[in-house]
Design a protein around this nucleic acid. Structure first.
Ligand code: SF4
Ligand code: SF4
Lengths: 130, 130
DNA sequence: GAAATATCGGACCTATTCAGTCCGACTTCC
DNA sequence: GGAAGTCGGACTGAATAGGTCCGATATTTC
């Protein structure tokens, strides 16, 4: 379907918010501003933190803040943190391979297309969302 | 998830086969060569025909054949014929729009990304699959 | 120390989409 | 008339996405 998940979409909005704000923001604050489900956004930010994109502070007056500069956070990174299966086709994440790999003749061109798309994603950073 | 559907994958294999073969091929022939479900592939080829990419001949000794040159069939065209929702996000297919369109600030950059991906897709043709 | 405000983390539910199947109708060649 | 094909719609099962719930833990404030 070639569509980005809501998780990525919300994640990007949140990152954009954090970048614009600079400091620490809470899940509630972000979820209300952009009308995103609180619980869902909470999970997303936890994933981003787990991947080292943002830092978290617990307790009262806690929240999340960017750990990296907006310029250094690419869409590739965000997608990687928030989705398991990237990759345009089964054979794209080259490790696994595909059962048809012998008879299928479109594998090579698809890998090339994958590379092109990866490049497109990596060229977009959070800094460009502001 | 940024993944192409099996429909597109099978469709491309079939188109590649038709392009390589030149003449008329039956669904059975293609489905057996690449180990694709007969019924599923049948539907896919019907869709491709409906979109004018291939031509069909009914009855005994019938089958499908390309209507266009392999060079003139882009991936964009194939995806368009086989999937309803193209588009990286809800707002991408600009007509519909999105309820968050006011508060959301990442819309413009996403449209740009969409354009980049579209370009990548349109630069791949069936001719390059052979 | 208690209460308020946060993140943390896992289980859970539901709707939608995808892949695949089944079957009856129609068309054409032999 | 029968075999070999496409046509088209309905249907199923499995996977995924999107969203919810709730109890635990950490930290600040009063
Ligand atoms: S090798 Fe071919 S059949 Fe297998 S996932 Fe890649 S494109 Fe599809
Ligand atoms: S306008 Fe914003 S919220 Fe709406 S679909 Fe586009 S990116 Fe998502």
């Amino acid at each position: 379907m070639l569509r980005l998940s809501k998780r990525v979409e919300y994640g990007l909005m949140a990152l954009q918010h954090l970048a614009k704000r600079g400091g620490v923001s809470t899940v509630r604050e972000i979820s209300e501003e952009y009308h995103i489900s609180y619980d869902l956004l909470a999970k997303i930010l936890q994933d981003l933190k787990r991947d080292g994109l943002i830092d978290s502070y617990q307790g009262v007056r806690g929240g999340y803040a960017l750990m990296l500069t907006p310029q250094s956070i690419s869409l590739t990174r965000v997608v990687g943190a928030l989705e398991e299966d990237t990759g345009i086709m089964d054979c794209a994440t080259s490790a696994a391979g595909c059962s048809r790999s012998g008879t299928c003749s479109i594998e090579a061109p698809m890998h090339k297309l994958q590379a092109t798309i990866d490049k497109a994603l990596s060229s977009v950073t959070v800094a460009q969302l502001m």
